[in-house]
Write a protein that binds this DNA or RNA. Structure first.
Lengths: 198, 198
DNA sequence: CCTATTTTATAATTCTGAGTATATAACGCT
DNA sequence: AGCGTTATATACTCAGAATTATAAAATAGG
């Protein structure tokens, strides 16, 4: 008994996510969000409360996709899965993909000084997702006999992988291309090869 | 025949640098700069033109100090010098040092989307300084017989080191402490050990 | 002492961008 | 048809922050 929404909320969130991805929270004014989503500010405020509400929705959406990648591919895999991740990151299939802007979560992470507590919580959750995925993959690698390492070393290596990934993504963000990230990934993958039992 | 400046420009720039270091360009309002430097906004505008002028002066000042470290310690050194850099980064002597806020240049790098062209130029110069310092150190290591590598590998490893350093600094920035960075540095140093000729 | 210049202190200006208000049109259901 | 909700379009309010303006005090040299 009322006019239904003419826009699909998921589509709007997707479009907003890409906009935030490219230009960040602070440098994406409401105008740009109107343009990106194709709906008016009032509708955005109605649907998401405020700008941060929309941003949180975008982060959640991104997290959903990332969870598929990390829990599905990395956490279930072994050293090969980790190497595949680094290779894929530094050689995106679509050269126009927003991935060239780095990673929404990492970008947001790097903006963390400006972020609210809710946003910080998302980021922390995301960092944990990555780290535990790496830990899982390393544990799998150990139980499959790919490498030998005690628990402390696995924790240490997971943190290293996280730092390496962030560093590569930061380079992508600054340079706007993946060439430097490829070098980082290549040497990182050689390091991982060094972990393999000979 | 006029009242002279009662403040020392270098001291003011130093104080401003620390302020920017801790909270970043955008989140350091003029108020905070007045407090940090102890002089009034008018004097700041008189001496530096605008807020960005002061920021550029702070970046230059930081760069000066960094150049001593990188050109003096790293570029003249070898694999050991690189490892020392990573060790020092993840274990600062003074726990209250602003180094715990990461590195002013890297922080600025990570904020690059908000930066002006002049600031971006500073950042690019800084990145080059780091990279070429790593290249020099690796070349030294080769000529000293520490490791065997052709020029391409040296370039690749230098980029890797840059990415690793940035990743570690990004972790410091997010976590506000150096524990994760220590893991990154430790594994990174093991990787460097792997480059040594056995 | 007087003048030119730089201070301090306070307040006005200006701009940007988030969020709100108002009026109106569109639409589905009873 | 009429009601209630959601859309469009435009304009307004409001806050924060940079920058500028004004007035008065301080100080070195002529």
């Amino acid at each position: 008994m009322a006019r239904p929404r003419t826009f699909d909320e998921d589509t709007v969130v997707d479009a907003a996510m890409v906009a935030f991805w490219r230009t960040g929270f602070d440098d994406t004014p409401i105008n740009a969000l109107e343009d990106a989503t194709g709906i008016k500010r009032i509708s955005l405020y109605n649907a998401f409360g405020d700008k941060e509400g929309l941003f949180l929705a975008a982060l959640d959406r991104y997290h959903l996709g990332a969870r598929d990648v990390y829990e599905g591919m990395v956490a279930q895999g072994n050293l090969d899965a980790i190497q595949n991740l680094f290779t894929a990151m530094s050689a995106p299939a679509d050269p126009d993909a927003p991935a060239h802007a780095g990673c929404l979560m990492v970008n947001t992470v790097l903006d963390v000084r400006r972020a609210s507590d809710e946003v910080k919580a998302r980021i922390t959750g995301y960092r944990e997702l990555l780290r535990t995925s790496f830990v899982s993959a390393l544990q799998n690698a150990r139980s499959e006999g790919q490498m030998i390492a005690d628990d402390d070393v696995i924790e240490q290596r997971a943190t290293y992988l996280l730092g390496l990934l962030w560093g590569a993504l930061a380079l992508i963000r600054v340079e706007g291309k993946t060439t430097a990230a490829k070098d980082v990934a290549d040497v990182g993958n050689l390091t991982i090869d060094g972990w393999r039992r000979r």
